[in-house]
């Protein structure tokens, strides 16, 4: 590691970007907070929306300039190998923290599914709670909730072997295509890079479309909603956060596609691409876990 010979490390001069990013984040969450509270209180006000749009704008622009700056510095060859290693480590541990974020939601699913659904019915070691819910039968997927007035259950769940299987295939394939693009970079074959990236991005978009279609079906035909009890809750939160990550990942790859079109990336200078690709693989792995635990074992 650091035993190698000394390389100068680039320390950037002061920068206004972070403060704008902080303001951007603040405005964004402040706006969302207002919108949510207004919704729940039944108030009609534009304040939240305006703040959110402003925040989003500041955030978007700041990120754009930030990444442009990094790319520019990279092209000025200010970055040593050691610097690039910092980015590699940074991205890996960022992905690790994302894994932990999903772990919280998977943990909730396991706990509910393995313990709570039984416990509410008075089955198991946690006391005769069934006395409180005389009409409740422990069963997974939980369609008839203990309190159907507040949490009207769904009439069915989405079977694993339909669209979710298709989506699994789409994402797994896209993991391969993104690797092909990587190989293409290593070979310096620009045309191939662009081809494979286009395919990957398209697969991502199809995935998102299918997912959206499935949601509409769940809401309209099955009564499976966020508010339909813990099955709907865990189902939409897990797949929803995954979907959000796919969206982000697709967006990242799209940027990489534009960069490739502009002629960026060489075999030893393509970390931006690699970071996006790792992120994509991570999203893929999460999906496989989802497919198994939410759809196959859950349905």
């Amino acid at each position: 590691m650091t035993d190698s010979a000394y390389e100068p490390y680039y320390v950037p001069h002061s920068s206004k970007l972070p403060i704008f990013a902080s303001i951007g984040i603040f405005l964004t969450v402040f706006g969302i907070g207002h919108i949510l509270n207004d919704l729940s209180a039944g108030v009609d006000s534009a304040f939240g929306m305006v703040t959110l749009i402003l925040g989003g704008l500041v955030m978007g622009l700041t990120l754009f300039f930030w990444f442009s700056k990094v790319i520019e510095e990279n092209y000025k060859q200010l970055y040593s190998n050691q610097m690039n290693r910092s980015y590699v480590w940074g991205m890996s541990w960022f992905i690790f923290s994302e894994v932990m974020f999903f772990a919280a939601f998977f943990g909730a699913l396991f706990y509910v599914r393995v313990f709570v659904v039984d416990w509410i019915g008075g089955v198991g070691d946690r006391g005769p709670s069934g006395m409180l819910w005389p009409n409740y039968e422990p069963h997974w997927p939980l369609l008839n909730t203990p309190d159907p007035e507040r949490f009207p259950g769904a009439s069915g769940v989405i079977p694993a072997m339909g669209l979710p299987l298709v989506n699994t295939l789409l994402l797994v394939t896209s993991s391969f295509t993104v690797s092909f693009a990587h190989h293409a970079i290593k070979e310096g074959n620009r045309k191939r890079i662009i081809q494979w990236l286009t395919v990957t991005v398209t697969l991502g978009l199809i995935f998102l479309f299918v997912q959206g279609y499935e949601y509409v079906h769940a809401y309209n035909d099955l009564g499976l909603t966020l508010g339909s009890g813990i099955y709907g809750t865990t189902f939409f939160m897990l797949t929803g956060f995954h979907g959000a990550h796919v969206t982000l990942g697709t967006f990242m790859l799209l940027i990489m596609l534009f960069r490739a079109l502009k002629g960026h990336f060489t075999d030893d200078n393509c970390f931006g691409f690699e970071a996006a690709a790792w992120y994509w693989h991570f999203v893929d792995v999460v999906w496989i876990a989802l497919f198994i635990f939410v759809y196959v074992l859950g349905g």
């Binding site: 909730a108 509910v112 709570v116 659904v117 509410i120 709670s129 409180l132 819910w133 939980l142 909730t145 203990p146 309190d147 507040r150 949490f151 966020l226 508010g227 339909s228 009890g229 813990i230 099955y231 709907g232 809750t233 939409f236 939160m237």
Partner: peptide, 10 residues
């Protein structure tokens, strides 16, 4: 109205 922390929704 999700049900993470409400027994009524499981």
């Amino acid at each position: 109205n999700t049900a993470f922390f409400s027994a009524g929704g499981g």
